[in-house]
Design a binder for these strands. Sequence first.
DNA 1: ATCATTTTGTTGACAAGGAAACAAAATCGA
DNA 2: TCGATTTTGTTTCCTTGTCAACAAAATGAT
Lengths: 157, 157
Amino acid sequence: MNKEEQVIMGFRDLLNKLVWLNKYKMEKSLKGYKPTEVHCIEYIGNNVDANVTKLAESFYMTRSAMSKLTKKLMQKGLIESYQKPDNKKEIYFRLTEQGKVIYKIHEELHKEFRERDKAVFEQVTEEQFDGMLSFVEKYSKHLDAEIKKLGIDMKSE
Amino acid sequence: MNKEEQVIMGFRDLLNKLVWLNKYKMEKSLKGYKPTEVHCIEYIGNNVDANVTKLAESFYMTRSAMSKLTKKLMQKGLIESYQKPDNKKEIYFRLTEQGKVIYKIHEELHKEFRERDKAVFEQVTEEQFDGMLSFVEKYSKHLDAEIKKLGIDMKSE
DNA sequence: ATCATTTTGTTGACAAGGAAACAAAATCGA
DNA sequence: TCGATTTTGTTTCCTTGTCAACAAAATGAT
């Protein structure tokens, strides 16, 4: 296996582990709340005027899925919807007080995760950080361009 | 956002894009075959004596899921099962001729993906590669240790 | 050798997410 | 301005994967 694949597969494997472990911890601290739900609460807490479409784009999921998820979160009383006077189509979400509690707990957990992994990041030099970030940026832009090409092809079909 | 989170979230986002894009391309070339199915065929093509358990471990999925997936692939005639004379429990899989065709097409696609992304990787210096690989390795080992801790906690509960 | 434990695979009930069809509102184009 | 197109969100049906319970074979302990 060449280095390119090692990097990609290495990171894929790493993120799998990270997600798995953090999910485990999260289910312990936030019993009854699924990772996706918490993730959704996090996004709504961080972004004003979040709606189904923005959530879907951010999570690489369908509007369909997000519509169902937000519905559930509303039923649980964690988020509430609102509209703007000049727009009767878009529906925005914000956290309820109860939702904010979950948000805070989630934030604390994240702090805990950072603390747990601090030792690893302390070993990384500034050059390595910058190298990784520049790689991510370049590759990401490259893929954006490829996806854009796709968009054109899709409509010309 | 600090650099640590930038790296993690950057890679998460990057992999999401990569998966999404390659999935799209794959569905175009291998119509009727889902990514998981192809992924499974790839594994069986690369590993002799693949069975449900090994597949599950490799894919971070349950045996249950793999049992159903292999069943479907057998019904489609892409893989076939066999056993060893001295073991009546374990069931192994290998590709059929039809399965090998899919395997080859998938291989070609991968080559195409590498070609597509070559330009990005050519810009990465050897130092950057090594930096990333060492980071992945360290972090991965760190998480393995954390997961191991968890295992002890789990049984002591 | 025998009985308990572990490993391996399967099944059914369930939940999450995707695809397609749809309705309602907004925007665009002439 | 007004009809066509696009955007936004919802619902229904379907697929995929998990969990839990299970059966059968292998392994281990005594």
